Simulated assay, not measured.
Amino acid sequence: MFDDIETNQNGDNAPLNAGNPLDFKKIYDASMMMLFKVALRIVNDEEAAEDMAHDSLIKANEKAIVFPSINDAKYWLIRVVKNASINYVKRKERERKAYEKVLYENHRKSESGETDLLKQESIDKAKDALKRLPKKLQDVLLLREYADLNYKEIGKVLGITEGNVKVRIFRAREQLVKIIGEDNVFLPE
């Protein structure tokens, strides 16, 4: 913009180079308190607001931005501090939600040793009962429940009709209930 301007020692309407120490001090003195207040209003944390204000000034200094007037510098810095503050608030909200999620997931459902034991006993009973079924009933049930195949796919694998698959699955489940007993299996809620 006004790259050939090295210093700004007199008038307020003269361009200011944020990379020049004298001009930077002028910009800092004219805007720091206002930037702090803008950031504080958004982030509601004095330390974070001060950081936002300083960061915006540092950004202008590092880029050695040349402003046509002190007001232009203020407007630019306000936009920078406002955007940084909004991003800070959004980031803090995401972090808060992530912390809550982790805290609540860990406390949602902790199972006792007794529950684990009952589950394992039920799994063992189901495996034992499955082994006691005839081979043709075992096969259809394993393909349906564990391989997650549909009736048509099971029929193709075993070389039987879809209707025959349905009948075998029904009979297999019926026999499992007789072997295990309806009330003899732990089902967690």
Rank of each mutant, 00 (worst) to 15 (best):
L118G: 02
N184K: 14
R132I: 10
D183P: 11
S112V: 09
K135I: 13
Y104L: 11
K166Q: 10
L137W: 02
V185K: 10
L142M: 09
D148C: 04
Y146D: 04
I169F: 03
V157M: 05
K156L: 07
V167W: 10
N164W: 09
G113F: 03
E153H: 00
G113W: 02
K135Q: 09
D148I: 05
N106M: 08
T161Y: 06
I179W: 01
K166M: 07
A147W: 00
V167I: 14
K152A: 05
E153Q: 14
E174H: 08
L141E: 04
L142N: 11
L117K: 13
S112E: 08
I123E: 12
I179M: 09
I169S: 02
I123F: 08
E105R: 04
E121Q: 09
L187P: 00
K101E: 00
Q175K: 14
E182A: 06
I169H: 02
K152D: 08
I123N: 09
L141K: 12
N164I: 01
A172K: 05
I179Y: 02
P134D: 03
N150T: 03
L158V: 11
S112K: 00
Y99W: 03
L103I: 11
L141F: 13
T115H: 11
G155I: 13
E174W: 04
R132G: 02
Y151E: 08
G159M: 06
L133E: 13
S122C: 04
S122T: 12
R173E: 14
V157H: 10
G113K: 05
V177R: 13
F170Y: 11
I154P: 11
N184F: 15
K135C: 01
L176R: 10
P188L: 06
L133P: 15
E174S: 07
L187K: 15
R144E: 05
K119Q: 14
Q120C: 02
I180T: 00
F186V: 15
D124Y: 01
E145A: 13
L103N: 02
R171W: 01
I179Q: 01
K136G: 01
K127A: 08
R132A: 11
D183S: 13
L133G: 12
V157L: 00
Q138V: 12
E121W: 01
E100R: 05
T115S: 10
K178I: 07
L130W: 09
K127Q: 11
D128L: 04
A147T: 08
L176Y: 14
G181Y: 01
K152G: 05
D124V: 07
Y99L: 15
E114N: 03
S112R: 01
G163H: 01
V177M: 12
I160D: 04
R168D: 04
Y104I: 09
R173D: 07
A147D: 12
I180D: 09
L142I: 15
K152S: 08
G181I: 08
K109G: 05
V177Q: 10
D183A: 06
V157N: 07
D124E: 12
T161K: 07
